[in-house]
Design a protein around this nucleic acid. Structure first.
Length: 432
RNA sequence: GUCCCCAUCGUCUAGCCUGGCCUAGGACAUGAGCUUUUCAAGCUCACGACACCGGUUCAAAUCCGGUUGGGGACGCCA
């Protein structure tokens, strides 16, 4: 039975790197009909916080990485004590007293060569002569990371330890402990790290690191998972758009690359655009609601769902994030708009009173207020005025939307409605 | 400093194990064009890489060695 675990410490949010580690563990368990265990490494009682724990479990769930078992190291302290005593009795560990009288348990490192088999990298050899004796139980009575990790992985029957590259140097220390405790050494697979754009670790400076930040920016869980999946792994055949269920069929931990990958927001944006385009507009509208309400562009009192749905369809293909919709479509929901200064400067500084009022009149007189009738009447007007269509289209767009970019003008007019179109046009007509 | 890991377009990667099908394929980004009513989307095209040096071989991106470069770890943090 394959049993893998993801072991976050609740001293911070779930970040990109952690999520990828969780994803590969989860995938391997699902691909091999094994178990995926969530182990909370909360031995540091000062830095561990409930809010981080909640954020981590929420984010894992949001990504779709469900766990079969969960356990907390803080509830297993007696087990670590017990195992430390075992080593003490066997003479492979000793007690060190601090000047204040506190006692710590230290592991005697035997000087030998240690071979570690890694599923991704093959054999890695270490010389334990480079290692110092290892603290097992700190003087405050809590276990150290390497010790708790080994005791847990062994007693929880973890068959494969899949974790970040940064743990490679912990591995020989842990192997020594497995052997001293008489436990079977599990298989190891060390995943390459995800690097920031400037090389080096992903950090706040190189972009957001918390999964919840990406959720708040309006990325879909599917996009993030799909993107993370393709960092250091590829199914071949030039396949890129791969969902979780499809990935289960294709994934094997041994196919993971050895090379560190750089996190690239542009590619994530592309994935998000792909998924956004395919999403059911109704579902998209539902997901958009919290974003719209938070931004205040959408009243909570009377959200017109049917209207929102139409507007969503108008923008769907051009969104990179859900936030883009909030930024770009606000003029459909706001009562009053303020044009962007540069847009106003460029397209509304000339006096277009005559053109605007003529067009407003035509729209007013339209029998059928549908997209093609609106366009026909506009085309007729510019023909009569003898001007180029774009000379008028851009100023009208700015007057109606406040922006220079957006959906086609005639769709904008249609969905804005006669009333609001007229009001926004006449605002720029000088009374003589 | 010591130890460890890694090395194909700017980025993610296919190919590497099992040398020849590689004039190295795809995607993102970038540039150009089509369309046009702006921005997207879409379509077409372009740009662009086997880090270097040696070895093995009839033949090396692929196997071996070294150099260089990048990354990681060296806590009574996890």
């Amino acid at each position: 039975m394959i049993r893998v675990r993801f072991a976050p410490s609740p001293t911070g949010n779930l970040h990109i790197g952690g999520a990828r580690t969780a994803l590969f563990n989860w995938l391997y368990a699902r691909a091999k009909a094994g178990k995926f265990i969530l182990r909370i490494e909360d031995t540091d009682q000062l830095r561990s916080k409930k809010e981080f724990l909640d954020e981590i479990t929420y984010s894992l769930g949001w990504l779709g990485l469900n766990w079969d078992e969960i356990c907390y190291q803080s509830q297993r302290f007696s087990l670590y004590k017990e195992q430390a005593d075992k080593l003490l009795k066997a003479g492979s560990a000793y007690i060190e007293k601090s000047p204040e009288g506190a006692e710590a348990v230290i592991f005697k490192v035997s000087h030998q060569k240690i071979k570690v088999h890694d599923l991704i990298r093959g054999e890695i050899e270490f010389d334990a002569s480079n290692l110092k004796d290892q603290v097992l139980i700190k003087s405050d009575g809590t276990p150290t990371y390497n010790f708790a990790c080994v005791v847990d992985d062994a007693t929880m029957d973890i068959s494969h330890v899949i974790r970040g590259d940064d743990h490679i140097s912990n591995t020989p220390k842990q192997v020594l402990l497995y052997e001293a405790l008489g436990f079977k050494v599990p298989e190891f697979a060390h995943l390459p790290l995800i690097l920031g754009a400037e090389g080096g670790r992903l950090s706040k400076r190189t972009g957001a690191t918390a999964i919840s930040d990406y959720r708040k920016m309006g990325y879909l869980a599917q996009s993030l998972v799909n993107y993370l999946l393709l960092l250091s792994w590829a199914p071949g055949e030039n396949r890129e758009i791969i969902g979780l269920s499809e990935a289960i069929k294709l994934f094997d931990i041994q196919d993971v690359n050895k090379t560190a990958a750089t996190f690239d927001l542009d590619k994530l944006n592309w994935f998000n655009n792909q998924y956004l385009k395919k999403e059911d507009p109704q579902k998209l509208a539902e997901q958009l609601m919290p974003f719209l309400i938070e931004r205040g562009s959408f009243g909570k009192d009377n959200p017109d769902q049917a209207y929102l749905l139409e507007i969503v369809k108008l923008f769907q293909a051009r969104l990179n994030t859900l936030n883009d919709f909030v930024d770009w479509a606000d003029f459909f929901f706001l009562k009053e708009i303020t044009p962007e200064p540069q847009a106003q400067e460029k397209f509304l500084s000339a006096d277009l009173s005559k053109e605007f009022s003529l067009f407003a009149q035509r729209l007013e007189g339209l029998k059928d207020f549908d997209i093609s009738s609106i366009e026909t009447s506009f085309r007729e007007l510019i023909k009569e005025l003898g001007i180029e269509s774009k000379k008028l289209i851009h100023p009208i767009r700015v007057a109606l939307t406040g922006k220079t970019i957006g959906p086609g003008l005639f769709e904008v007019i249609y969905y804005l409605g006669k009333q609001r179109t007229r009001e926004r046009l006449l605002k720029w007509v000088k009374k003589s």
